[in-house]
C-alpha cells in the first residue's frame, strides 16, 4: 500500500493511505510526497493524486472523490443476482454476478468512481435480467400448448 505524507501549515503529516486523502481535505496545492517522488510536489501534479481532483461547473478545482465513497463499498446486488439464477433467467443470470465482482474489485483497488459506476451497471443488469425473465413467461405457455 502506497504511503503518502502531506505538508501544510508548516507541519508535516502522515503517513496516510491514498484512500484516506479525500477525508483530509487536501487541495491541489497541498504539498505531498510519497516514495518514488524526487521531491515534495503539489497534489494536483503528482501522478498518483492528480486524478483525485476535477473542476466543477464554476471552474473551481474540487476533490473528485467524495469522502463517503471511500468508506462504504457500493452495493453489488449479490443477493438479487443469486436469486435470479434460480428463476430461469439463466444463463443470463450469471451476468449480474460478473458485474458485481467488478464493483468489489474496483472498490478494493481504490477506484471509487469506477466502483460506483459498476454498481449502477449491476443494478441495471439485475433489473433487465428480471424483466427479460418476465417477458419470457408468455412464450413458455405458447411453447407447451
Amino acid at each position: 500500500m502506497q504511503k503518502v505524507w502531506i505538508h501544510r501549515d508548516g507541519v508535516q503529516q502522515g503517513p496516510f493511505s491514498l484512500a484516506e486523502l479525500p477525508s483530509l481535505g487536501i487541495t491541489p496545492d497541498t504539498m505531498i510526497w510519497y516514495e518514488g517522488l524526487a521531491s515534495w510536489i503539489q497534489a494536483g501534479k503528482a501522478p498518483l493524486t492528480a486524478a483525485m481532483f476535477t473542476a466543477d461547473e464554476a471552474g473551481n478545482v474540487v476533490a473528485r472523490v467524495k469522502v463517503e465513497d471511500t468508506q462504504k463499498c457500493p452495493p453489488t446486488y449479490l443477493m438479487w443476482s443469486i436469486l435470479l439464477t434460480i428463476c430461469c433467467c439463466n444463463p443470463v443470470g450469471i451476468i449480474p454476478i460478473i458485474l458485481g465482482s467488478s464493483v468489489s474489485s474496483k472498490f478494493r483497488s481504490m477506484d471509487f468512481e469506477g466502483a460506483r459506476k459498476a454498481s449502477e451497471q449491476t443494478e441495471w443488469a439485475v433489473i433487465i435480467t428480471f424483466v427479460l425473465g418476465l417477458m419470457m413467461l408468455p412464450f413458455s405457455w405458447i411453447i407447451y400448448l
Partner: peptide
C-alpha cells in the same frame, strides 16, 4: 399454467 423454463425449452 405455471411458467416453464425457457432455457430448458
Amino acid at each position: 399454467l405455471f411458467p416453464r423454463c425457457m432455457f430448458k425449452a
